[in-house]
Design a protein around this nucleic acid. Structure first.
Length: 283
DNA sequence: AGTATAACCTGTCTGC
DNA sequence: TGCAGACAGGTTATAC
């Protein structure tokens, strides 16, 4: 469920609420949540440890502990972290802190995943190691981005590929393409330089705006205090099939791309035929 | 190698 | 009203 801005919002709240706290107990209610480690090892490495830092890498949260181990959490499609009992269904995981506070991972669907790793080797976890260009990091460079566009892949699918661009999910992919007036089925190597440049800039811009509004609560997403974000109120196409485009009043359309819904304005975002097709017709 | 589908789950909404 | 089927903000193994 959460994309980069939502995870960043949660990360900032966790920095305020749990950094410095000692973990006194842990309930792993859905053991399948845990990857590459045994529940016993998880308990041994977390109980009695203090959280010294919370970080984010793309859509992953990283809790660094004072025993040189880290917990790495991905919230999947609908996972939420909630402090104390507020709305929490206590499915997944509960962390108990020395001051009596509890942090619940509430994830009915069960797509969340938890990893345990030495802090030193976190970035070598396969899931993290393969992540691509990430907004707000030094590797988010135009020269690298431009190279990513040299492929025959549909641009919307490419934006969702975490190995290429990390942190963009299904909401922001549609929104960014709308901002840049690019059809989601346009092939990446058919984009003009200025279209690609627009994507590069707008990806980071929209995420900045979304973070300022504490994420988009389209359905399930909540901050750790249970509060909704506000950015859903600023979405132009996602979830708006049939409603008029704010720019031209044409009804927003929804199409399927690789099993994911894509929303776009058919008039503002026309599919452009590659130049070579036009040439062929001349002969 | 690089890209497209299927699968993982459960709750909720839609259409017949 | 009831129920079958589709769909959900993600990632991954598997199949071309």
């Amino acid at each position: 469920m959460p994309e980069l801005p939502e995870v960043e919002t949660i990360k900032r709240s966790l920095e305020r609420e749990v950094v410095g706290k000692e973990i006194t107990g842990l309930e792993l209610r859905r053991p399948s949540l845990l990857q590459d480690a045994s529940p016993k090892e998880l308990e041994a490495k977390t109980t009695g440890a203090k959280i010294v830092r919370v970080r984010r890498r793309a859509k992953y949260l990283i809790f660094d502990l004072d025993n040189h181990y880290s917990l790495i959490l991905h919230l999947g499609l609908e996972g939420r972290l909630l402090l104390d009992e507020k709305e929490a269904e206590e499915i997944g995981l509960v962390l108990h802190f020395a001051d009596g506070m509890k942090l619940h991972l509430d994830d009915i669907k069960g797509y969340s995943r938890l990893f345990l790793s030495p802090t030193q080797g976190v970035e070598r976890l396969p899931s993290l190691a393969k992540l691509g260009l990430e907004p707000f990091t030094p590797n988010y460079k135009w020269e690298s981005f431009e190279k990513l566009m040299r492929t025959n892949q549909e641009i919307k699918r490419l934006l969702l590929d975490q190995a290429k661009i990390a942190g963009v999910g299904n909401i922001y992919a549609s929104e960014v393409l709308y901002r840049c007036r690019i059809h989601p089925r346009q092939l990446a190597n058919e984009l003009t330089l200025s279209e690609a440049r627009c994507l590069f800039d707008e990806i980071q811009k929209i995420m900045e705006e979304a973070i300022q509004h504490r994420g988009a609560s389209v359905s399930h997403y909540r901050d750790i205090d249970g509060s909704k974000g506000e950015f859903q109120n600023f979405l132009k196409v996602y979830g708006r099939a049939g409603r008029p485009c704010e720019r031209c009043r044409t009804p927003i359309e929804e199409i399927d791309q690789g099993g994911r819904g894509t929303f776009f304005c058919p008039k503002c975002q026309p599919l452009k035929e590659p130049a070579k097709f036009g040439m062929d017709e001349l002969f």
